[in-house]
Design a binder for these strands. Structure first.
Lengths: 238, 238
DNA sequence: TAGATTGTTAATCGATTAACAATC
DNA sequence: TAGATTGTTAATCGATTAACAATC
């Protein structure tokens, strides 16, 4: 570690009184949605043993403007140093903190169908500090089995399980029709985040719960739109 | 069908000369990303046998402004009728056309792991007019088997298969490390769309290929950000 | 010190919302 | 015709980019 790194890393909350620095104040959703991508690229830079990076170098890698990168990082109080750039590890740690990677949130998966089982075995959770602890289903053929490391319980045991095991978030991979009911039960039992793959859009106005909807079908359709556009244009040219 | 419907549906390309009407001219990505959601809600309205809907009624259902709905639909030339609203079926057909649902795009799945197999059995494709035809993998234990209806071929057979079977898009569910290579082979063999679940971001500048990246991990992390924020705020209050 | 690069303000761009005239 | 609701223009809002002074 060179001299610079020493001084650089010694930035003990220079702006603790600035709400923006602690991530409390409203950071725009557009910025939030970009943070995980920064996280991925920084992880890769660390893997490559890169110590520092400038906003312009990162901008070339990620295909965004250097301006945007600096603006984004500054929403949280400035992680760089003029004339030097950003210390990769420090930046990675800071973004990890903002994203709660080190909190090690616990998760359960509701619905042990194809998608639920695929997600249950996915290393994605571990990479992001999320710990899956169990799966739930109503199918007697699944209940009592294990999916990878995860035990599969019956949905009837949900409330009991949640009372005994602190659970931060639930992944919803059950049929659309059961989604709203399951979401209500989870929220009522104190689960704070729902990662919703069901395609059902429900309201949980009584509870302080965050819902992240993943509409795989919507994503597929935007691709189909592009393909359709290509076809239409080609036909027009003829 | 009432009198109105008759006249209404008889709108044979009133604006065929207007580029916006045919969807050729650049429609903003923000609008495109909302179309699949309209598609879903309209499908539901049809299921409920609803014949007409106004922008304000739809706005209440979907939690967006009526203004936005009218603006969005008007990017494609106006599907409504003053004083009446929108004919649900007509609107559904129009949006389906824009999204290419009736083209029946063919798809192959590259990577017969957990996620690939889960997607291969997912009814999502059928609902959106996409027809999966085969899966590919390098694992001898999978090659030759079937996943649901889909035969699993070896990756070595990819080019031959594509030469013999017209394929519009490929779903990438193989390991990150193999993604760029597979993407290049697919593009070179004429596949026009890639639905990329690998987390790898590759450039295919030599080809006219559309790539839709699905970063499940990024989605999970934005949820974690929200949860982390809740925790931080609660701790602050204490 | 001189050079580099951030942090930050100002300018631009795009997307959303409001308003209302057109018209069914 | 009168009422309703779109299509469309104008106003607002937010997000991105450009520019540059601060500073390491």
């Amino acid at each position: 570690m060179n001299d610079f790194d020493q001084t650089y890393l010694d930035t003990t909350d220079r702006r603790a009184d600035d709400p923006a620095a602690t991530g409390r104040l409203g950071v725009s959703p557009a910025v939030i949605k970009r943070l995980p991508r920064y996280y991925r690229y920084l992880r890769e830079l660390i893997r490559q043993d890169k110590l520092r990076i400038s906003s312009s170098e990162l901008s070339r890698m990620m295909n965004v403007t250097a301006s945007q990168i600096r603006q984004d990082f500054n929403c949280f109080g400035g992680f760089g140093q003029q004339g030097y750039g950003y210390n990769v590890k420090y930046l990675y740690v800071k973004i990890s903190e903002i994203l709660g990677v080190s909190r090690h949130f616990t998760a359960i998966i509701i619905g042990a169908g194809n998608l639920g089982r695929a997600l249950g075995r996915n290393p994605m959770f571990a990479k992001r500090g999320v710990v899956p602890t169990a799966m739930f289903d109503v199918d007697p053929a699944m209940v009592g089995k294990r999916v990878g490391e995860l035990p599969v319980f019956h949905m009837d045991q949900l409330e009991q399980y949640l009372a005994e095991n602190h659970t931060d978030l639930a992944v919803l991979t059950l049929p659309k029709e059961c989604a709203a009911d399951a979401a209500y039960r989870l929220a009522a039992a104190g689960v704070r985040g729902l990662w919703n793959f069901t395609g059902s859009e429900f309201a949980l106005s009584d509870f302080d719960v965050r819902v992240e909807n993943v509409h795989l079908g919507d994503s597929l359709m935007t691709l189909c739109y592009e393909l359709n556009l290509m076809h239409t244009e080609e036909e027009r040219k003829k």
